[in-house]
């Protein structure tokens, strides 16, 4: 390997350490499937399913687990005739 190249690049180990810290913090917090973000996801989807009959393909769930903040994004397409129960 080129020595200049070696010094020219930013060291990658700190990045590795940060990524692992975030990941392991989340994995340790979630025994089974019980961490907060996962529980919110399940419960929100259950609430939606109670009112609207949605096809799995129309629900997009994305998560981003950060060290300070995690985001949970649920994107549901609700067709006009999808309401459950109400007539």
């Amino acid at each position: 390997m080129n020595i200049l190249g070696f010094f020219g690049k930013k060291a990658s180990a700190p990045t590795a350490r940060d990524r692992l810290q975030v990941l392991l913090a989340h994995e340790r917090a979630s025994v089974g499937d019980s961490d907060l973000v996962t529980r919110l996801r399940e419960e929100i989807l259950a609430v939606i399913a109670k009112h609207v009959k949605v096809d799995g393909e129309q629900v997009k769930v994305t998560m981003d687990r950060g060290d300070q903040v995690s985001t949970l994004e649920i994107d549901v397409e609700i067709p006009l005739k999808a309401r459950v129960g109400a007539t």
Binding site: G56, V61, M63, D64, R65
Partner: peptide, 22 residues
């Protein structure tokens, strides 16, 4: 580099708990 974004996995799809697209 997608470790923070995993929502569902192969087993969820096989067990019918999530659609493949999800």
């Amino acid at each position: 580099g997608a470790e923070r974004r995993v929502v569902y996995d192969l087993v969820n799809v096989i067990q019918g708990e999530a659609k493949l697209a999800q």
